[in-house]
């Protein structure tokens, strides 16, 4: 009875010792894994492991197209976009939103505009303003850390848009919230390998259904070519 108890005690003690030994060894093994530098560098970049964030600020040329091109007959460099994206690590996709600001202006020299039973002589100042807010989705070629990463993008949203035609100082035109559809492509270039900052080049076609019959406008469409910088973090 006594012997049996002794043996059981020894067994318990040895089990505890073994257990401690095991934890100790495991600790050593784990510590070795952390210290092992080559092993550390074999770990995937956080951008490949987690959803990361990207903000980009771009600006550049805006070209009015279609009936808006006929109405404006001018390009603009007052064309900016701020975009924020969630960049997914595995599937080459990102989703986000973009806020834009576009302003076209053109001054036409004095001219007599004839109509059915009269005429107006005036210097016309034509302006088109749009502040689009869109939800965007992008598909990229190459993985998240590729130095050069081309992409295609589509966006849907709403814009506050205004088309104004000033005869001297008398204004005519229309404004309001309109639907916006965008489609574009571009490329992002990281300034350093697996870095946070990069250059962005892209072009977007933007369609806003904005009809003003008196100005012969069927839609306010434009092509926006922008360059800028992006910053990403995780």
């Amino acid at each position: 009875m006594m012997v049996g108890m002794k043996i059981r005690k020894v067994k318990t003690i040895s089990a505890i010792v073994l257990c401690f030994m095991g934890v100790f060894l495991a600790n050593i093994a784990e510590a070795q894994q952390v210290i092992d530098r080559p092993q550390l560098f074999k770990r995937e970049s956080p951008y490949l492991r987690y959803t990361s964030y990207r903000v980009s600020l771009t600006g550049g040329l805006g070209v009015a197209t279609g009936s808006l091109g006929d109405f404006m007959a001018a390009n603009t460099f007052r064309n900016y976009s701020l975009a924020v994206d969630f960049v997914f690590p595995k599937n080459n996709m990102s989703v986000g939103f973009a806020i834009g600001s576009q302003y076209f202006v053109n001054r036409l020299p004095r001219q007599v505009y004839e109509y059915d039973n009269g005429a107006i002589s005036a210097v016309q100042t034509r302006t088109v303003t749009a502040y689009p807010i869109t939800l965007t989705g992008s598909y990229h070629v190459g993985d998240v850390n590729a130095r050069v990463r081309p992409y295609v993008q589509a966006g849907l949203g709403a814009a506050f848009a205004e088309v104004a035609n000033y005869y001297g100082m008398l204004s005519t035109g229309d404004n309001g919230f309109k639907f916006v559809a965008q489609g574009g492509a571009g490329v992002r270039v990281l300034l350093s390998k697996t870095g946070n900052v990069g250059l962005e080049f892209g072009a977007t076609y933007q369609h806003i259904p904005f009809k003003i019959e008196s100005e012969g406008l069927s839609a306010a469409s434009s092509i926006n070519a922008r360059v800028g910088l992006f910053y990403r973090w995780w």
Partner: peptide, 14 residues
């Protein structure tokens, strides 16, 4: 957009 209009350019004849 109208701040740079000259006096003559503001005139409208209807």
């Amino acid at each position: 957009p109208l701040k740079d209009l000259t006096v003559e350019e503001t005139q409208v004849f209807i």
